[in-house]
Measured scan of single mutants.
Amino acid sequence: TTYKLILNGKTLKGETTTEAVDAETAERVFKEYAKKNGVDGEWTYDDATKTFTVTE
C-alpha cells in the first residue's frame, strides 16, 4: 500500500511517499524521515487517503 507524508515544517515543506504493509509501518518510516530532516510537530493521519501530515 502506498502512504503519503505531507511536511508542513517551518523551513521545509513538501511531500513524499512510501510503500508499507500497514499504517503503523509507514508512520515509523515517515517519523524517521521527518526527524532526519529536522521537522518535529503535530502528526495527523487520514485513513481514507492514507496520508500523514506533520505540522510545525
Rank of each mutant, 00 (worst) to 15 (best):
K13A: 07
A34V: 09
A48R: 08
T55V: 09
F30G: 00
T44S: 15
K50T: 04
E56C: 05
L7P: 01
K4Q: 05
G14T: 12
T25R: 06
T11N: 15
K13W: 11
F52C: 01
F52I: 01
E32F: 06
E42K: 11
E19M: 13
T53K: 06
E19K: 07
T11P: 04
V29M: 10
E27S: 09
T49Y: 05
T49E: 06
A48E: 13
W43L: 03
G38F: 07
G38L: 09
V29H: 14
G41V: 02
T25E: 15
T44K: 08
E56G: 05
T55S: 10
T49N: 08
W43M: 04
A34M: 04
G41K: 01
V21W: 13
N8A: 08
E15Q: 09
Y3C: 01
V21L: 14
T16M: 12
Y45V: 02
L12W: 14
D22Y: 04
A20C: 06
K35D: 07
V54G: 01
G14E: 14
Y45P: 00
T49L: 08
T55C: 06
T1S: 10
E24S: 12
T17M: 10
E19I: 14
V29W: 12
G14F: 14
K4E: 02
F52R: 00
N37Q: 14
E42F: 13
R28T: 08
D22V: 03
K13V: 09
K35T: 14
T17S: 09
E24C: 09
T18M: 14
R28N: 07
A20R: 03
A20N: 03
T16S: 13
G38M: 05
F30A: 01
V54S: 02
Y33A: 03
T51F: 03
A23E: 06
D47C: 05
K31S: 05
Y45R: 02
V54H: 01
E15I: 12
E42A: 12
A34G: 03
Y3L: 01
T1D: 13
T1R: 08
V29K: 10
E56N: 05
G14H: 10
T17G: 04
A34Q: 02
K4Y: 14
T55Q: 07
E32K: 08
G9Q: 04
V39R: 03
N8L: 13
Y33M: 04
D47T: 12
E32W: 07
L5E: 00
G38Q: 08
Y45L: 02
T25I: 08
A48H: 10
E15R: 06
N8V: 11
T18H: 08
N37M: 15
L5H: 00
A20Q: 08
D22R: 04
I6G: 02
T44C: 06
N8P: 03
K35W: 15
T2R: 11
T49I: 07
T55P: 01
N8C: 06
K35E: 08
A23G: 05
T49D: 04
K31N: 04
L5P: 00
L7N: 02
Y45A: 01
K35P: 01
D22H: 04
E56V: 09
N8F: 09
K36W: 09
D40W: 15
E19T: 14
G9F: 13
T51M: 04
L5R: 00
Y33T: 03
G9V: 10
T17W: 15
E32A: 13
T11W: 13
L5D: 00
Y45I: 02
A34Y: 03
K35Q: 11
K13Y: 12
K13H: 11
A48M: 12
T18K: 04
K31L: 08
A26G: 02
T44D: 11
T25D: 09
N37S: 09
T53I: 09
T16R: 12
L5F: 06
A20L: 03
K13G: 06
V39E: 02
A26Q: 00
T2G: 05
K13C: 10
V39D: 02
E15P: 04
N8D: 15
R28A: 15
D22I: 03
V39Q: 03
N37P: 01
D22G: 04
E27Y: 14
E56W: 12
D47V: 12
A26M: 01
L7A: 03
A26R: 00
T55G: 04
F30W: 02
D22E: 05
T16G: 05
W43Y: 03
T16F: 15
Y33S: 02
I6P: 00
T17D: 05
R28H: 09
E24K: 13
T55H: 08
R28K: 13
V54F: 05
I6N: 04
V54T: 03
E42Y: 11
E56P: 06
V54I: 08
N37H: 15
T55I: 08
Y3T: 00
Y3W: 08
E27V: 07
I6E: 04
N8K: 12
G9E: 03
K50G: 04
